[in-house]
Nucleic acid binder design. Structure first.
Lengths: 252, 252
DNA sequence: CGTTGTGTTGATATTAATCAACAAGTGTGG
DNA sequence: CCACACTTGTTGATTAATATCAACACAACG
């Protein structure tokens, strides 16, 4: 079941020459081998869209009519409680699949953080796509399994980690991103870009905006990170931060 | 992509006549149609095992050599932090798949709560299985997608719900179980069986054992539930409990 | 320049954790 | 059958981590 270094999927056939936003690799296929004829078939099945920052393209509760693949940009995925409490369940970047689950309505909302290009398939066309590209089904299973592992890791974070550990985990997770690029670029990166607001980080980590701010300030004060601008964090002591993130380091 | 009422998968070919532990249906196939010849092929590929309560059959960090399907019984799935903090990421009952993710080592541990029968495939044989049963791959993708939805719901619970809301969600979730039986048995059930300890419930909900106990006592005091024995909860006011679980009901 | 959105910092409140005692089962051996 | 240990669950008192409330700083923008 091993696949040798899968190139990131960017389904938009017209973008085959555009480098991956993260790693710069020019990649466009679901698996290692795909030809221009395949790209034509893809073009027929899919619709290309752009989404402005702040705009939602999936609304929780709406009929689940489409399946998406992120071509570029980042979205936040979230669930809401009636009184407005929000849990961000993840951030979807280049190559990410959305709306895989088969159910009558979406179980989450998705909103663009940055300008996005997404590739959209109607459910019937997704069926055709999967029949046309057998490798696609295998790849999707692999992707879904890996997301499940990440989701379980996030449950550990939300259920059992302290605020300090959550922030450390978050920063390390961003630094080690994106997994699909690991073959192309040495990881981890020292400079972490945070395209989301403090509020988004708080809702992702199950904290308040104040606690996020305070905890980052504390980590900075200890020399573990630097914060040149509020959307950039430089990791100064990666190993120490990993120690905190994994719970190996006591308190702080 | 709709599939009409899929019967629960119980991979153990020798158990084809045994009813599902939850709903009593006699089902044994991954999809609606499977014949005795298929069962023979399954038998060759898989190994049947039993696991005693309290025994682990998956250890986090061990080489991920097998893929599992639960034939009967229940397991708890969990992750640990170095200092012993534990997060139970889910409970795996009849029909549940485990070890799907392709990675060198397991990312979680699994321990039996009740006597279990499980059906095990080595990775190479899983590959053969998937090639032999094309419907299997589709079904696994469907299963993984649904688990992902459940994981996101659990993130909302862990990140944003109060102790009271967590317990209500947990009980409602158990009452509405098992999803694969929905076609056979009217849901929800009033009587909820809790094969796990208070400690397990606490580690699943991101709380302490004391908070779980206190919150259940409070719900009982309000007439929402009854607790005839510590492992049985009877839901008296299902709608009210749903209201709490979904955050529609203010405080308490 | 004021306005607005975003982030930081301080003071206080609150939820759930921790610490502690006890009660109720469960199983063992005498 | 009963004493005993041991596990599991309940309840109370106190503490601690994080949320809430509040003020202010700063940048982007018309």
């Amino acid at each position: 079941m091993s696949m040798t270094r899968i190139r990131p999927l960017i389904m938009d056939p017209s973008r085959r020459d555009e480098p991956c936003a993260h790693c710069g690799a020019r990649a466009y296929s679901v698996c290692s081998a795909i030809d221009s004829k395949d790209l034509e078939r893809l073009a027929v099945l899919s619709t290309q869209m752009t989404v402005e920052p702040g705009r939602s393209f999936i609304e929780e509760g709406d009929p689940a009519e489409h399946f998406f693949n992120v071509t570029s940009g980042t979205a936040k995925l979230f669930k809401l409680l009636p009184d407005g409490r929000r849990q961000i369940t993840g951030f979807a970047g280049t190559g990410h699949f959305l709306g895989l689950a088969v159910s009558s309505s979406y179980s989450f909302s998705a909103e663009a953080l940055e300008p996005m290009r997404i590739c959209r398939f109607s459910r019937p066309k997704l069926r055709v796509l999967l029949d046309d590209f057998p490798a696609m089904e295998k790849r999707l299973l692999e992707v879904a399994s890996n997301e499940l592992v990440a989701a379980q890791e996030q449950m550990l974070l939300l259920g059992r980690k302290t605020a300090r550990e959550r922030l450390a985990s978050f920063l390390i997770g961003r630094a080690d991103m994106p997994t699909h690029c690991l073959g192309y670029q040495p990881s981890p990166t020292e400079t972490v870009r945070l395209p989301m607001t403090r509020n988004d980080i708080a809702d992702y980590l199950g904290l308040t905006i104040e606690t996020v701010s305070r905890t980052l300030t504390k980590l900075k004060g200890e020399g573990l990170i630097e914060i040149p601008s509020s959307s950039i964090v430089v990791i100064k002591r990666h190993t120490a931060l990993v120690g905190i993130a994994t719970g190996e380091t006591e308190q702080g």
